[in-house]
């Protein structure tokens, strides 16, 4: 990472659901401008919660950020409404895609441009841009998104987010329920969007292999805490990550001592 101020910076946030359920216990992370950063972790680790606390979709699930700072381009954005955040350039693509099923693909894209005020012509141009990245969506433009395939829905959800002209997309489990080839295709497009359109990504993934292949940096979350972080390349090579998240291990079964080493490390990092 460079020394320049990060695009997004989270300092030590704590999140409580329903006033009692403490889910994030002091998470800090940075997304540099132009970066693709991955949040990795098992079910229930708090990946989605982290993303929702940034986009403030938490609000409508009776969750609260009770401590810490969330800064976007240096400005504190805690407590802004999702629509204010979208206007500022932060948008979330929710886990499970969530297209509007009774709207067509094109209507979904248009709905994504709801917050824009730069006129119909600019919006039409961007629809074509989205179709250039996702040619399949163009073929399906008149179909109701309730009836298109899961992969197409994921593309539609990402395309819809692009329509808001975001600077940062919070992408929650894009690989969920998709065939490996399709996951690869979608990650390729994410990478191109990052490079060609200058959109930064913070993505939550359980598919560690894929995420570390495309991300520049990664954070590993466990029980609402960051237990490890580093450059994607470093994480890929890390023995613990290999064993616990990539499902590989160098020399057959690991001994108990190695597991202990991991625990120790975890405690220390937490």
């Amino acid at each position: 990472m460079t020394q320049a101020a990060p695009l997004l910076s989270i300092q030590n946030i704590e999140v409580i659901y329903d006033h009692v359920i403490l889910v994030l216990k002091g998470v800090s992370l940075d997304v540099p401008a132009g970066g693709i950063v991955a949040i990795l972790g098992a079910n229930g680790a708090g990946k989605s919660t982290t993303l929702k606390s940034i986009s403030n979709l938490l609000q409508s699930e009776r969750g609260d950020v009770t401590k810490g700072d969330i800064r976007f381009r240096g400005e504190r954005i805690n407590g802004l409404s999702p629509s204010e955040l979208v206007v500022k350039g932060v948008i979330q693509v929710m886990e499970g895609r969530h297209c509007f099923p009774h709207l067509t693909v094109e209507e979904n894209l248009l709905a994504g441009a709801y917050t824009r005020t730069d006129g119909a012509a600019a919006i039409a141009t961007d629809i074509e841009l989205v179709y250039r990245y996702f040619p399949r969506l163009k073929e399906r433009r008149e179909s109701l998104t309730g009836y298109i395939s899961g992969g197409e829905q994921q593309m539609c959800a990402i395309g819809r987010a692009l329509m808001a002209r975001p600077k940062l997309i919070l992408l929650d489990e894009p690989s969920m329920g998709l065939a490996p080839q399709l996951v690869e295709e979608i990650f390729e497009i994410v990478k191109r969007l990052n490079r060609e359109e200058g959109v930064s990504f913070l993505l939550a993934e359980q598919n560690t292999t894929m995420a570390l292949k495309y991300a520049t940096y990664g954070y590993i979350l466990e029980n609402g805490r960051v237990v490890m972080d580093g450059d994607a390349a470093t994480l890929r090579e890390n023995e613990d990550v290999k064993e616990f998240y990539l499902g590989l291990s160098a020399g057959g079964r690991k001994s108990y001592r190695d597991t202990k080493h991991y625990r120790r490390r975890k405690r220390w990092l937490a």
Binding site: I91, C99, F100, L103, N108, L110, Y114
Partner: peptide
């Protein structure tokens, strides 16, 4: 209309509508 489309979007999935910035 834009508002009409947003109304249908909200009717379909209000979380998703919120996520794309529809108040």
């Amino acid at each position: 209309t834009r508002i009409g489309r947003a109304l249908r979007a909200v009717a379909d999935d209000n979380q998703a509508a919120l996520s794309v910035g529809i108040p």
